[in-house]
Each structure stands twice: as C-alpha cells, then as structure tokens.
Design a protein around this nucleic acid. Structure first.
Lengths: 220, 220
DNA sequence: GTCTCGGCAAATGTCGACAATCGACATCCG
DNA sequence: CGGATGTCGATTGTCGACATTTGCCGAGAC
C-alpha cells in the first residue's frame, strides 16, 4: 500500500489476517505462496516473509519442503494457549495494579455493559471490539515490554483463531458478569487475587473453546 | 548441506548463534545480509529468512529499510525479560510439580554440586551447560506446549545475550546455594512457593545483569 | 562557521527464473 | 491382488539481478 510507508510484508500479513477472519482460510488449510503472490500481484519474496512472520506468531505452522498451513490446535493446545495467556495477562495486570485509576475502572465497567448490550443484540463485531479493548486496557498498563509483547502475540493468535465463537460461548449476562468480576477484583488491589482471577477467567474460556471444537470437528 | 536434510536457513541461524557466542557480534552491531551471504557462500534469500527468524526470537531487532541489528537491551528491558522468564518458568514448574520424582530431585541436586565445581575451576562452558540442563529439566516437565515454547524462546534469547557474564555474577557458592534453594522448595510441593521462588530467582539475576550492563557500558 | 541541498555509495526490498523436494498416481513385479 | 518402485506435477528452496530507500559527504549559499 501507499499509506503505510513500510514494506509489502505487512500488507500481506494484513491480507492473510483478513482471510482468516472471513473464514476463507480455515485450520489445516495450506497457504500457497504462489497463489497469494498472483492474488496480490507480488512476487513470492514478500509473501514468504509475511508467512514466516505468521509462523512466528503461531498462526501458521510450517512443514519444511511442504508448505505453510493454518494452525490447527488440538483441544489440549487450545487450553494451553488460554492458560498461558491467563498467566501472562494476570501478571501484567498485577504488576500495574497501582496504575489503575478510578477513572480506568469506571471505563472498564462501562465496557462490561456495552459488551452485554452488543451481545444481546447480536452485534458480534462490536462485541469483539469492546472485548479486545477491555483486555487491551488491562494489560497495557504494564510497562514490562517483554511481557506485553508475548501477551500481544498470544492475544492476537487466539483472537484470530477463535474470533468467530465468542458470542456462542457465553450468554450476554455471563459475558457482563465475568468481566465485571474482574473489575471487582481489580478494585481490591490485591495482587494474588488479581492474578488468580485472570487465570481462572482464561482457563474457563479455554475449556469452553476446547470443548466446542471437540464437539463440532476433530482438530489437527 | 547434506547431513542436515533441512534447509540452509537453520544453518545460517546456527552460524549467527555462534558468532554471537564468540562475541564476534555484539549488541548494536548491524548484521549485513550480503556479508553473511558471501561468508557462507549463499545468496541473500536464505540469509534473510534466518535473520527474520532471529528477529522473531528477539535476538535481533529490525529497522525497515535499514537493516537488522543485534538486540541491545536497556537495563529495564533486561530486567523485564528476566522477570518474564521467572513468571513463565515458575508457572511451568508449578504445573508439573507432581511430576517430579525423587530421582529427578536428586539429579537436580547433583547438578547444583557440579555447577559449583565447574564455577570454582573456571570451566565456564561446562557451567553454562549444566545450568542450561538444570533449568531445562525444570520447565520441560510441563506439558503445556505453548508455555514451553515461550519459555524456550526467552531462555534462548537470554542465554545468548548474557552467556558470557554468568560466571561473574555469582560466586560458586552462591550459584550452588541459589539452585539448591530451588530444589528445596520443589521438595515441599507447594505451588505458590515454587512460583514465588523461581520468580525471585530470575528477578535477582535480572537485577544483577542489568546493573552489570549499566556499569560497564551504556545499552541501547 | 553553519545550514541546506544534491548526489553518491551501500544496504535493503522486490522480482522472475531455475533447482530441489515432496506427494500422488500409475506401473511393475512377486 | 498387494506392495514396492518410477514418474510426473505441484510447491517450496535458492539464486542473481534490478529497484528503491537510506544515510553520508561535500559543495555552495548565507
């Protein structure tokens, strides 16, 4: 593109994101370099770079001499990923606990209500957006760069892979309550509680997503 | 090459690792693609792939249109990285707490003694090796793939960047005691204690490394 | 003396073509 | 008929050349 002064790589990455979100690329599918190249009117070089980055982010898996495939996580791997995210985000939030102002907390509570509203009306896109914003606000208070980087990566990965199912996992009330509970714990300013709460938050979701996949289709 | 059926990329990655360990590449140095290419008798394509992987692992940083540079962490970033590793490894070990047999624990204690011995005799290479083995045995008991992957990456990064200083941070007795303390805590089989112990273990080391760098040279 | 502008060298970004490898199908032999 | 083997198409791996961008350096104006 022109707007982004940087290279084609990011453009390709964005394109693949989109394909993933639209469901045009599903777990297990092979991602062909030449196909993407002709699609985007580029040579294979920038495509390969983009794909490699996606592999690094865990969205694709790479088999040498064979190709890149959309990551297909087993139920166990799904749970693992969510558990790990809970660990990272829990710690990040705990580290930044003192940094949360009353205003922040009220913003978060407002998000809870909005999430419920959007969920109730079936506005999936807005729901996702607010949800992302919610957690973003949470772990971005931390100033541990390394921690944030890993959290972002994992968050991004889970977001793209399980994007579609968010609305079918919990009822609108559950969504609201679960997130309000987090804000509640945040208010108490006790590190271990905060860590524990976020771990459980993601642990539950991981279990649900994994069960969902187990029922609907066999992963891997 | 022939012995390794996989691609040149891994070969290049290994080569850069070596250069880093030997101190031929230092933080801040630019890593030139064409230079590596002629050095290894390859074209720039596999070099670029390898460098990109190294960027993903955090060993290099990448400036678009400019090049790749050996990561130069600020003191804060050094501490952050160690803290994060403590978080990950602490959790991984805690998760696998029941999996540690008495035999494992005795092996670990044996490692402690060997580390002290090698440190005392100035055998840096062996010291590093055992140290790596020690922590490897610790977090590899976990079966959380995602967690292990991140831990490995971070471990690898810190290993390569601060490899050289290990022996100068602690006395041989301290090295032994610090690791024996970990085994001790492991024996008690109490999750929170284990997590806490590993966090502190790496926190301390991070502080030391950061201070070391602050005194000897200005990072970044 | 300092600042600005323009051009030059060097490095990265991209391209199209060729080589090596893998998977699948067809074929051959027991 | 079943399993091993050879061949073919498709895809990735690698290459060398070209395009573009960056940062430096020096000439010239103020």
């Amino acid at each position: 593109m022109v707007i982004n002064k940087s290279t084609y790589k990011d453009y390709v990455v964005a394109h693949v994101y989109e394909r993933l979100q639209k469901g045009e690329l599903n777990p297990g599918d092979q991602v062909l370099e030449s196909r993407l190249a002709t699609e985007l009117g580029l040579s294979r070089a920038p495509i390969r770079e983009a794909l490699q980055q996606l592999v690094g982010d865990g969205l694709l898996t790479y088999k040498p001499q064979v190709g890149n495939f959309v990551a297909a996580l087993s139920p166990k791997e799904i749970i693992d990923a969510y558990v790990t995210r809970g660990l990272l985000e829990g710690f990040a939030v705990a580290e930044a606990l003192e940094g949360f102002t009353e205003e922040d907390l009220e913003d978060l509570e407002e998000y809870c209500l909005q999430m419920e509203k959007h969920a109730r009306r079936g506005k999936q896109k807005e729901l996702i957006e607010i949800g992302t914003e919610f957690h973003h606000l949470l772990f971005n208070k931390s100033n541990n760069i390394q921690l944030i980087e890993y959290t972002q990566r994992l968050s991004h990965k889970l977001h793209l892979l399980f994007y579609k199912h968010w609305a079918s996992l919990y009822t609108p009330e559950e969504i609201r309550d679960r997130h309000q509970a987090l804000v509640c714990v945040l208010r108490r300013k006790e590190r271990p509680l905060v860590e524990q709460a976020l771990r459980e938050h993601y642990n539950e979701t991981g279990q649900k997503v994994a069960r969902f996949y187990n029922e609907n289709e066999e992963g891997v």
